[in-house]
Amino acid sequence: KRPMNAFMVWSQIERRKIMEQSPDMHNAEISKRLGKRWKLLKDSDKIPFIREAERLRLKHMADYPDYK
């Protein structure tokens, strides 16, 4: 399994928030909203998620050196 990218790290947190506020919302609608919100997010606000994704990528490389 591939490591999460910055969007996936961010969306995992945000998806939980949306599901708590709107438990009846369909997953497809949540995904659309997350995509739009990520695009509107300032680059500076994305930095912590980019760093976490990089950390996960490096850990994945160390844990699975033969992964292609």
Score class of each variant (00 low, 15 high):
residue 36 K to Q: 15
residue 67 Y to A: 14
residue 26 H to E: 14
residue 63 D to M: 14
residue 26 H to L: 11
residue 40 L to E: 15
residue 9 V to K: 00
residue 63 D to Y: 08
residue 40 L to T: 14
residue 31 S to C: 13
residue 2 R to S: 13
residue 60 H to L: 09
residue 37 R to I: 05
residue 19 M to S: 08
residue 55 R to G: 06
residue 29 E to G: 03
residue 20 E to N: 04
residue 42 K to V: 05
residue 50 I to D: 03
residue 3 P to F: 09
residue 9 V to P: 03
residue 55 R to T: 09
residue 54 E to D: 07
residue 66 D to G: 11
residue 32 K to W: 07
residue 53 A to R: 00
residue 59 K to T: 09
residue 23 P to L: 03
residue 38 W to H: 03
residue 8 M to D: 14
residue 3 P to K: 11
residue 29 E to I: 00
residue 23 P to K: 04
residue 42 K to T: 13
residue 21 Q to F: 05
residue 40 L to A: 14
residue 2 R to D: 12
residue 45 D to R: 02
residue 8 M to V: 09
residue 1 K to A: 09
residue 20 E to P: 03
residue 31 S to E: 15
residue 57 R to C: 12
residue 58 L to P: 06
residue 32 K to F: 07
residue 5 N to S: 14
residue 33 R to M: 15
residue 27 N to P: 15
residue 64 Y to P: 13
residue 27 N to F: 07
residue 46 K to E: 01
residue 2 R to I: 13
residue 21 Q to G: 07
residue 21 Q to K: 08
residue 4 M to H: 03
residue 49 F to W: 09
residue 1 K to G: 12
residue 41 L to Y: 01
residue 9 V to T: 05
residue 58 L to K: 12
residue 17 K to S: 04
residue 41 L to E: 01
residue 61 M to Q: 15
residue 9 V to I: 14
residue 38 W to L: 00
residue 33 R to K: 14
residue 56 L to K: 09
residue 46 K to F: 00
residue 31 S to V: 13
residue 35 G to Q: 15
residue 11 S to G: 04
residue 4 M to V: 12
residue 36 K to L: 11
residue 62 A to D: 14
residue 11 S to M: 05
residue 38 W to N: 01
residue 60 H to Y: 08
residue 18 I to G: 01
residue 68 K to R: 12
residue 43 D to M: 12
residue 25 M to N: 02
residue 25 M to W: 02
residue 48 P to M: 09
residue 22 S to P: 02
residue 59 K to D: 10
residue 10 W to P: 02
residue 20 E to F: 03
residue 13 I to L: 10
residue 38 W to P: 02
residue 60 H to S: 14
residue 45 D to Q: 11
residue 23 P to A: 03
residue 58 L to W: 07
residue 39 K to H: 04
residue 11 S to P: 00
residue 59 K to A: 12
residue 64 Y to N: 15
residue 55 R to N: 08
residue 18 I to A: 04
residue 16 R to M: 08
residue 49 F to M: 00
residue 6 A to V: 04
residue 38 W to Y: 03
residue 15 R to T: 06
residue 1 K to D: 14
residue 66 D to Q: 07
residue 31 S to W: 11
residue 16 R to Y: 05
residue 31 S to T: 14
residue 9 V to C: 07
residue 60 H to I: 05
residue 63 D to N: 11
residue 68 K to L: 06
residue 1 K to M: 08
residue 9 V to G: 01
residue 49 F to G: 02
residue 17 K to D: 04
residue 5 N to H: 03
residue 58 L to E: 15
residue 61 M to T: 13
residue 43 D to V: 07
residue 40 L to F: 06
residue 34 L to E: 02
residue 5 N to M: 01
residue 63 D to L: 08
residue 9 V to L: 14
residue 4 M to I: 14
residue 31 S to R: 10
residue 34 L to H: 01
residue 30 I to Q: 02
residue 16 R to T: 11
residue 28 A to S: 13
residue 10 W to Y: 03
residue 61 M to H: 15
residue 48 P to G: 03
residue 33 R to I: 12
residue 6 A to L: 01
residue 36 K to W: 12
residue 52 E to W: 03
residue 1 K to N: 08
residue 13 I to C: 06
residue 67 Y to P: 12
residue 52 E to N: 00
residue 43 D to Q: 06
residue 10 W to H: 02
residue 8 M to C: 07
residue 39 K to V: 06
residue 20 E to C: 04
residue 37 R to S: 10
residue 8 M to W: 08
residue 43 D to W: 11
residue 28 A to C: 06
residue 21 Q to C: 03
residue 62 A to Q: 10
residue 11 S to Y: 06
residue 17 K to R: 07
residue 28 A to V: 09
residue 63 D to F: 07
residue 24 D to E: 12
residue 27 N to Y: 09
residue 57 R to H: 01
residue 58 L to S: 13
residue 64 Y to T: 14
residue 33 R to H: 12
residue 46 K to H: 00
residue 46 K to C: 01
residue 39 K to M: 10
residue 18 I to Q: 00
residue 15 R to Q: 06
residue 27 N to T: 12
residue 13 I to T: 08
residue 67 Y to N: 14
residue 67 Y to L: 13
residue 62 A to N: 13
residue 5 N to P: 03
residue 65 P to K: 14
residue 50 I to S: 06
residue 42 K to L: 05
residue 5 N to L: 03
residue 40 L to S: 14
residue 12 Q to C: 12
residue 23 P to N: 03
residue 64 Y to C: 12
residue 11 S to H: 02
residue 19 M to F: 07
residue 67 Y to F: 15
residue 64 Y to F: 10
residue 2 R to N: 10
residue 11 S to T: 02
residue 63 D to A: 12
residue 37 R to N: 15
residue 17 K to G: 01
residue 30 I to D: 01
residue 56 L to F: 03
residue 53 A to C: 01
residue 25 M to C: 07
residue 16 R to H: 08
residue 54 E to G: 03
residue 44 S to C: 04
residue 24 D to F: 10
residue 26 H to I: 11
residue 40 L to D: 15
residue 30 I to R: 00
residue 38 W to K: 02
residue 17 K to N: 07
residue 30 I to L: 11
residue 16 R to P: 08
residue 52 E to Q: 06
residue 26 H to V: 12
residue 57 R to D: 05
residue 24 D to R: 06
residue 8 M to R: 09
residue 3 P to H: 12
residue 64 Y to V: 14
residue 42 K to Q: 11
residue 52 E to Y: 02
residue 53 A to S: 05
residue 44 S to A: 14
residue 20 E to I: 08
residue 12 Q to V: 04
residue 58 L to I: 10
residue 34 L to V: 01
residue 16 R to C: 08
residue 23 P to G: 04
residue 15 R to H: 05
residue 18 I to H: 03
residue 2 R to F: 11
residue 5 N to F: 00
residue 5 N to K: 03
residue 24 D to Y: 08
residue 57 R to I: 07
residue 52 E to L: 06
residue 38 W to F: 00
residue 59 K to F: 06
residue 21 Q to E: 12
residue 25 M to L: 13
residue 67 Y to R: 14
residue 24 D to L: 07
residue 16 R to I: 08
residue 47 I to Y: 08
residue 54 E to H: 04
residue 67 Y to W: 06
residue 34 L to F: 02
residue 6 A to D: 03
residue 31 S to D: 15
residue 18 I to C: 07
residue 3 P to Y: 09
residue 22 S to N: 13
residue 18 I to N: 04
residue 49 F to E: 01
residue 35 G to K: 15
residue 23 P to S: 04
residue 33 R to E: 15
residue 29 E to L: 03
residue 55 R to W: 04
residue 44 S to G: 05
residue 46 K to Q: 02
residue 48 P to S: 04
residue 35 G to N: 13
residue 32 K to D: 13
residue 48 P to Q: 06
residue 3 P to C: 07
residue 5 N to E: 06
residue 23 P to Y: 01
residue 53 A to H: 05
residue 45 D to A: 08
residue 19 M to C: 09
residue 40 L to W: 04
residue 39 K to Q: 08
residue 62 A to P: 10
residue 31 S to P: 02
residue 29 E to P: 09
residue 66 D to A: 09
residue 61 M to V: 12
residue 68 K to M: 08
residue 39 K to C: 06
residue 19 M to N: 05
residue 44 S to D: 08
residue 40 L to Q: 13
residue 21 Q to M: 07
residue 25 M to A: 13
residue 53 A to W: 00
residue 33 R to G: 07
residue 46 K to D: 03
residue 29 E to H: 01
residue 57 R to G: 07
residue 66 D to V: 10
residue 46 K to N: 00
residue 13 I to H: 14
residue 5 N to D: 13
residue 38 W to D: 02
residue 4 M to R: 01
residue 27 N to R: 11
residue 53 A to Y: 06
residue 57 R to E: 11
residue 60 H to F: 09
residue 24 D to W: 09
residue 3 P to Q: 12
residue 45 D to H: 05
residue 49 F to V: 01
residue 55 R to I: 08
residue 52 E to R: 06
residue 47 I to K: 11
residue 67 Y to S: 14
residue 36 K to V: 14
residue 42 K to P: 14
residue 44 S to M: 07
residue 45 D to M: 05
residue 12 Q to L: 09
residue 37 R to D: 13
residue 11 S to Q: 06
residue 27 N to S: 14
residue 40 L to K: 13
residue 47 I to W: 07
residue 9 V to H: 02
residue 44 S to N: 08
residue 59 K to S: 13
residue 20 E to M: 08
residue 24 D to T: 08
residue 3 P to W: 03
residue 6 A to N: 00
residue 20 E to V: 04
residue 30 I to S: 01
residue 27 N to G: 11
residue 35 G to H: 15
residue 42 K to Y: 02
residue 64 Y to E: 13
residue 8 M to H: 14
residue 33 R to L: 15
residue 68 K to V: 05
residue 17 K to L: 08
residue 8 M to N: 08
residue 57 R to W: 06
residue 5 N to C: 09
residue 1 K to E: 06
residue 58 L to N: 13
residue 31 S to N: 14
residue 24 D to H: 14
residue 8 M to Y: 12
residue 2 R to H: 06
residue 23 P to I: 03
residue 16 R to D: 08
residue 63 D to I: 09
residue 66 D to T: 08
residue 62 A to E: 11
residue 48 P to N: 04
residue 53 A to L: 01
residue 60 H to R: 09
residue 19 M to T: 06
residue 55 R to C: 06
residue 42 K to I: 03
residue 68 K to P: 15
residue 6 A to C: 02
residue 26 H to A: 15
residue 8 M to P: 00
residue 20 E to S: 04
residue 1 K to H: 11
residue 29 E to Q: 05
residue 49 F to P: 00
residue 30 I to F: 00
residue 64 Y to S: 14
residue 22 S to T: 06
residue 45 D to E: 12
residue 31 S to L: 12
residue 11 S to A: 13
residue 6 A to H: 00
residue 28 A to T: 08
residue 46 K to L: 02
residue 40 L to Y: 06
residue 48 P to K: 04
residue 55 R to Y: 04
residue 49 F to Y: 12
residue 52 E to F: 08
residue 32 K to H: 10
residue 11 S to N: 02
residue 31 S to G: 09
residue 5 N to G: 07
residue 4 M to W: 10
residue 52 E to V: 03
residue 66 D to P: 12
residue 9 V to S: 01
residue 29 E to S: 03
residue 57 R to S: 06
residue 54 E to K: 05
residue 19 M to G: 04
residue 22 S to I: 04
residue 28 A to R: 10
residue 12 Q to I: 11
residue 56 L to S: 07
residue 53 A to P: 00
residue 1 K to L: 06
residue 53 A to E: 03
residue 67 Y to V: 15
residue 61 M to A: 12
residue 18 I to Y: 07
residue 62 A to L: 09
residue 2 R to Q: 12
residue 25 M to E: 06
residue 63 D to K: 10
residue 37 R to K: 14
residue 48 P to V: 06
residue 60 H to V: 09
residue 65 P to Q: 14
